[in-house]
Simulated scan of single mutants.
Amino acid sequence: MALLFVGIDPETKTDQCPAAWVDVEMKPEPDILFQGWLADEETQAECRKNSPHPDTEAVIRMPYRMIDIIRKACDAAEQAAAGKL
């Protein structure tokens, strides 16, 4: 596994905060990984109305300020899929 670190919450003051990576060796396409805050039960229940999730999945929150980092992760995943990373 080769994880490309894309970025961390730009307003963090610790090392325990939202972040993004791309698994550039995942085949056939790379995966994007997020570390975020686990959504509260009320939010998860609302999300399950549209997309029930098993115990192996979770609903996480990513702050608005992470938009640029999430875009960079998407771009890196596309580059990895195209063999450019």
Rank of each mutant, 00 (worst) to 15 (best):
T12N: 02
R65P: 01
P18A: 05
R65W: 03
A19S: 15
A39C: 15
A76I: 06
P63R: 03
E78L: 12
I32T: 05
D75V: 06
P30E: 09
P30C: 11
Q79E: 15
G36H: 10
D31C: 10
Q16V: 01
F5H: 11
D40Q: 09
R71G: 07
L3P: 10
L4E: 10
K27V: 11
C74E: 15
P54S: 09
V24M: 01
I8S: 10
A2W: 08
G83Q: 07
W21F: 14
D9E: 11
C47K: 14
G36V: 06
D68Y: 06
G36L: 07
P18T: 01
G7D: 07
K13E: 15
P54E: 13
Y64M: 12
T12R: 07
A80T: 01
A2S: 15
C17M: 04
P30V: 09
A82H: 01
K49S: 09
E41Y: 09
N50C: 04
S51K: 09
S51P: 00
V59N: 04
F5P: 06
P30S: 12
G83K: 06
E11P: 00
Q44Y: 01
T43Q: 12
I8T: 11
A2C: 08
E78R: 14
F5S: 04
A82W: 00
I70W: 11
M66C: 08
V22C: 08
L85W: 14
R48Y: 10
M1P: 05
I67G: 11
E11Q: 06
W37E: 12
Q44F: 02
T14Q: 03
M66D: 07
D40W: 05
D55G: 14
C47L: 13
I67S: 14
A20K: 01
E57H: 02
M1F: 05
N50W: 05
I60F: 04
H53A: 12
R71M: 06
P18Y: 00
A76N: 09
T43V: 12
N50R: 09
A39D: 09
A77Y: 08
A58L: 09
P30Q: 13
V6Y: 01
I8P: 00
V6N: 04
K72W: 01
D15K: 06
Q35M: 11
A2D: 15
K72S: 11
A73S: 13
C74T: 06
V59S: 03
K84N: 14
G36R: 07
T56M: 03
E29G: 08
T12C: 02
P18K: 00
Q79P: 05
G83F: 11
T14M: 03
M26G: 07
A76Y: 08
V22L: 10
I69P: 08
I60E: 04
P52A: 04
